[in-house]
Amino acid sequence: MTETIQQAQENIVAEFAEFTDWEDRYARIIALGKKHPGIAEEFQTETFRVKGCQSTVHLHPKFENGIVYYEAGSDAMIVQGLIALLLRVYSGRTPEEIIRTPPDFIHQLGLTENLTMGRQNGLRAMVEQIKLYAVAFHAMGQSNQTN
């Protein structure tokens, strides 16, 4: 892991601070969305669908050697770009790190409140789901179980 969970957030905020207008910020999100590999088709099922999103979002967790790895994707590109950011911060971390880290960096990117409050794009629902899985894995303790 090259970035810590702390560094990932700081780096993302710094990267977005370079943009002067919203179009560049959104273009960046769209570019991230396009580059993001999405989620394997086998996980695009009702079980892994994140409820409360207007676009379709799937999130799948894997717990290996005490680390949680998330895979997630959406059919909407801006949402997919936000997913890419979330996973850069939250995937490949310990359950403790995930539980301890609020998604504050999202609010420092210069996106609109409408987008970052995430009622309609499901950002909030996604973060909640990421945390719920982490809590569950945390409860499972140090056992090297995979989901």
Partner: peptide, 9 residues
């Protein structure tokens, strides 16, 4: 382009 993206922009 997903309708959601158009609506957001």
């Amino acid at each position: 382009i997903h309708p959601h993206d158009i609506g957001t922009l």
